[in-house]
Design a protein around this nucleic acid. Structure first.
Lengths: 231, 231
DNA sequence: AGCCACTCGGGTACGATGTTCGCAACGGAC
DNA sequence: GTCCGTTGCGAACATCGTACCCGAGTGGCT
């Protein structure tokens, strides 16, 4: 108990003997459900059903639903890959785009990542790649770490904002049109109140940027900034 | 049903007639529980118990637990305030610090914000303040919006990272010492594997910055960047 | 003052969840 | 062939969010 590693990823996983599901299968199935129907749909019973096994069997391979979530998060990062070219700006941008893609592909990630340190194998591999990218900018590892943390913080934050409306829509169960139809009048009222002049200008006069454009703009700002501070 | 506003904050709230709790009380109690014991501890039964009322009574004032969360989020932003001085850099930094403080004070926020558009009264008020701050940098409202989104994305992202370890600790139920004692050997193994040279350098050679220092560094990067792009 | 319609508070109950217990059935080792 | 550890899993439990329903109390009208 005391010498048992408390960290999820360090545990040795038993390999199934009979027709077993195996941890991998379980994690993959859970991810598929989460992607298609959202995290709340990932119940132990549901995963077991989709796997064609009994609910209690899952606990032979996974200690709890929470641990399953940790494994899902790390598994999802397995798909990311970045070639380090030595051009720090291009490399960091590549890392940033990869992270964004992963977060968009698995919308449930954004809500679960805060509160879970990224210590899984794949998370570490990605962090390593990010540090290697930043190493092209500065040899000071402390500075490089600061740069990586800053860039990744920005990426995570923007995608969270980007996902907010999408997720709310999904959660409300409305179609895009219904959702907009219900938000519209509310925004109209807010504007009509006259209490939010800047917000009003943003909505009325402002040009609407695509999510990609917003992302690129902010990313370039951040990269400009770190270049200035680490040169 | 159809002409009923679908947005939580636009609803008219009934005012209690007898000794009622009232929405405010409910939300405040829920926030207190979440701050002290984490979001999962905020069950309808628990809130009702702390309020000294019956569980079902809460539903007279709040449609669902989910709606209660929306209200909690907006309520928590009521405490924020920023004076707009016209010095865009100082003003934006002030907004950023306020947001960080709020997120740190209510650790459950970070996990709930992604997936919920910030359309509550207080959220709008804060967004308005942020835009006003950015207006000191550029008169172009589209650009100002981009700047605000970028800065806030960074803040949200860093705090999420900052909170990750703290939250994992809390969730594991271990003390800080026990937690570190369980992470230590794992990190040692990771380093010993030799597969993560940059990560190893970061841990071994790297100087450990305080959370505040990390935050300041990244924030300055971002502010430098937006200054360059909006000038 | 008296009455009625309406609202409020909340006990009870239902379905679903995460997790544990204990057992039956299987498979490799001897 | 026998045996023992291991596996899969049915059943049960505590707890959750929420709907239903009714007694009690109130405000407004006559």
């Amino acid at each position: 108990m005391a010498d048992e590693p408390a960290l999820v990823w360090a545990k040795e996983r038993r390999s199934p003997r009979r027709q077993a599901p195996g941890v991998e299968q379980i994690v993959r199935t859970a991810i598929a459900i989460a992607d298609a129907e959202g995290l709340p749909a990932v119940s132990m019973r549901r995963v077991a059903t989709d796997l064609g096994s009994g609910t209690a069997s899952l606990y032979r391979y996974v200690a709890s639903r929470d641990e399953l979530l940790d494994l899902m998060i790390d598994e999802v990062k397995a798909a990311e890959h970045t070639e380090i070219t030595g051009d720090w700006r291009a490399d960091l941008a590549s890392v940033a785009h990869q992270v964004r893609l992963t977060l968009l592909r698995h919308p449930w990630l954004s809500g679960e990542l805060p509160g879970r340190p990224a210590l899984g194998t794949n998370s570490l591999r990605r962090h390593e790649a990010a540090l290697a990218a930043a190493a092209g900018l500065t040899a000071d590892i402390t500075l490089a770490a600061g740069v990586v943390d800053t860039v990744l913080a920005y990426v995570f934050g923007t995608v969270a904002q980007e996902l907010a409306e999408l997720q709310a829509q999904r959660r409300s169960g409305l179609t895009k049109e219904q959702w907009q139809a219900s938000v519209g009048p509310y925004i109209r009222d807010v504007i009509a109140s006259g209490q939010y002049p800047q917000f009003t200008r943003r909505v009325v006069e402002g040009e609407e940027w695509s999510a990609e454009r917003v992302f690129e703009f902010g990313l370039n700002c951040v990269l400009d900034g770190v270049a200035a501070r680490a040169g």
